[in-house]
Design a binder for these strands. Structure first.
Length: 239
DNA sequence: GCGACAG
DNA sequence: ATCTTGTCGC
């Protein structure tokens, strides 16, 4: 996939905020220009103690949802964790993982928000603009905005409102389970974002590509950190 | 000033 | 995100 164009990372929240406003002006929320055949999901997990991020990107056929490719990357965060500024923390390692893909997908689902963001430029939107690819943000928790309560039934949904604008959808992807939060990132609109995520569900809370990316990113992390765990009460005997 | 706050 | 065992429910 397209090579990541290196950027400098901001040194302050003010600078980061300014970058987001500039980037937001480049976001295009239009219907997908083609039915995707390949969908990639990318997810990052955090190392224990060590300051390392582990990213995994998984490509699946669509709508069959069979895995076709998995790639990884790891590296240091580019920014401290500050709610609203995830791109500057995870963007580099995510871009690196995506650049390892042999085949370019027609759409990328990012674990994070798209336009459901204080400056309407969440992780998914920023990744989409920088790499010029269609993206969707799919998140487990709300960062900003509000929505009415959802019935417990699968498929229930409510608009996520930011001031008077709808920036996404709270969607009950599984009965009696907390909703997921869907918002378009770039080169995709809200109806298409919701439709695609719906069609990626396979009985779990998270859409299948994201669920798999999460599992594999954690597998990479555990292999990389080679943890040796011993039950405390058995430590003496073992030692 | 206070609360809220993706990973 | 993570620290954390068993447990309740589909």
């Amino acid at each position: 996939m397209r090579e990541f164009s290196h950027q400098s990372w901001p040194k302050s929240k003010a600078e980061a905020s300014r970058r987001q406003k500039e980037t937001a002006s480049q976001i295009r929320l239009l219907p997908l220009d083609e039915e995707p055949h390949l969908i990639t999901a990318v997810e990052t997990v955090y190392g224990n103690g060590s300051d390392v991020l582990y990213a995994c990107a998984v490509t699946m056929s669509f709508p069959e949802l069979e895995e076709v490719e998995r790639v990884f990357a790891e590296g240091p965060p580019g920014f401290p964790y500050v709610p609203g500024f995830l791109y500057f923390r995870e963007g580099a390692v995510i871009s690196q993982a995506l650049s390892n893909l042999k085949e370019t997908p027609q759409l990328v689902i990012v674990h994070g928000h798209g336009t459901a963001h204080p400056r309407r430029c969440g992780l998914a939107s920023h990744i989409g603009v920088v790499l010029d690819i269609p993206t969707i943000g799919c998140c487990r928790r709300l960062l900003t905005g509000h929505h009415r309560e959802l019935p417990p039934t699968k498929g229930a949904n409510q608009p996520i409102m930011l001031a008077t604008r709808q920036v996404g959808v709270a969607y009950r992807s599984k009965e009696n389970v907390k909703p997921i939060y869907i918002s378009p990132g770039h080169r995709c609109d809200l109806p298409d974002a919701v439709s695609i995520v719906q069609r990626c569900l396979r009985g779990f809370r998270q859409p299948e590509p994201l669920r798999l990316a999460h599992l594999l990113a954690n597998k990479l992390k555990q292999r990389s950190e080679k943890k040796i765990r011993v039950k405390p009460e058995l430590a003496e005997e073992t030692a």
